[in-house]
């Protein structure tokens, strides 16, 4: 056992400086969030009063938003769609990425480049053809167009996962191959467990993307407040409560809460993954 002696004072000052910089960064990041939280707990007439401490602590804004809009339904619709989309993306992107990273087949470079090129095509260009396609399939007005495309991979996810898979020593796959493992087994039993940190990071992206997607929900779903998603509801909410920060902040807080939960869940795996790969 090696004992790590505390460094003498002189050599610790760079650490302290780093801590100070990090602290300032953290304040800059967390500050707006604290402001949001504190404003959401104020009475409407106190919205500019008292700085960060609400003069009167009140949860009135939170009960109010649920009266004005069926927030629980909007939240549920958004969560459902985001979870299905995230699952679809994790599954299909990691599969495609695995093949691109491990399997040598003719034309794979060309195919990969082609895939990356799709990153450059803006959504506005594909929106109308995609709309016509979904209409032709009879899925217009259902939630399917919001999550179905997630089960067809996506350039960003495939790229991200492929880069990670490339960092895993190929010898692992080769050894498994010699022992008679199928490609599916190598993918499922070796690569996927090792890729937990990348999967966690990508899950956050995928979840966030689906969560924030106003446009797709807007065009495919009827704008009824019991059928649509949170961003559409929030946009409507904003029209009515412009400048009424207390209630707006309560609504925003409720709508970012699931993302924060998703982040903290993924972050645990993220840190675990980093720790594991450190032992490699």
């Amino acid at each position: 056992m090696i004992r790590i002696e505390p460094a003498p004072w002189e050599s610790r000052w760079p650490d302290r400086l780093a801590m100070l910089v990090l602290l300032l960064g953290a304040i800059a990041m967390v500050g707006p969030f604290i402001w949001m939280l504190s404003t959401s707990l104020k009475l409407p007439e106190d919205q500019y009063a008292g700085g960060l401490i609400p003069p009167t602590l009140s949860f009135e804004n939170y009960s109010k938003i649920f009266e004005i809009m069926p927030f629980q339904t909007l939240l549920w619709n958004s969560i459902k769609i985001a979870l299905i989309s995230t699952f679809g993306q994790l599954l299909t992107c990691s599969m495609a990425a695995f093949v691109f990273a491990i399997v040598k087949f003719p034309g794979r470079h060309a195919l990969f480049v082609l895939l990356l090129v799709t990153l450059m095509v803006p959504q506005q260009i594909t929106a109308i053809p995609q709309f016509i396609l979904f209409k032709w399939l009879g899925l217009y007005g259902t939630q399917a167009p919001l999550y179905l495309p997630s089960f067809l991979g996506g350039a960003f996810g495939v790229f991200l996962m492929r880069q990670y898979f490339l960092t895993i020593p190929i010898e692992l796959a080769e050894a498994a191959r010699i022992d008679g493992a199928s490609l599916m087994t190598i993918y499922w039993k070796i690569y996927l467990p090792l890729a937990k940190p990348a999967l966690a990071a990508f899950a956050i992206f995928a979840f966030l993307f689906s969560w924030n997607d106003l446009f797709t929900a807007l065009i495919y779903l009827p704008s009824d407040l019991d059928k649509t998603t949170l961003p559409v509801g929030l946009a409507l909410f904003q029209v009515q409560f412009a400048g009424k920060w207390t209630i707006m902040m309560a609504a925003v807080l409720v709508s970012v809460a699931p993302i924060m939960v998703a982040f903290f869940i993924a972050q645990k795996h993220f840190i675990e993954g980093v720790a594991l790969s450190g032992l490699k």
Partner: peptide, 13 residues
Amino acid sequence: MRGKTRISLAALA
């Protein structure tokens, strides 16, 4: 995630 491979989309949908 924006530019999807859409070839198999029709089949799946």
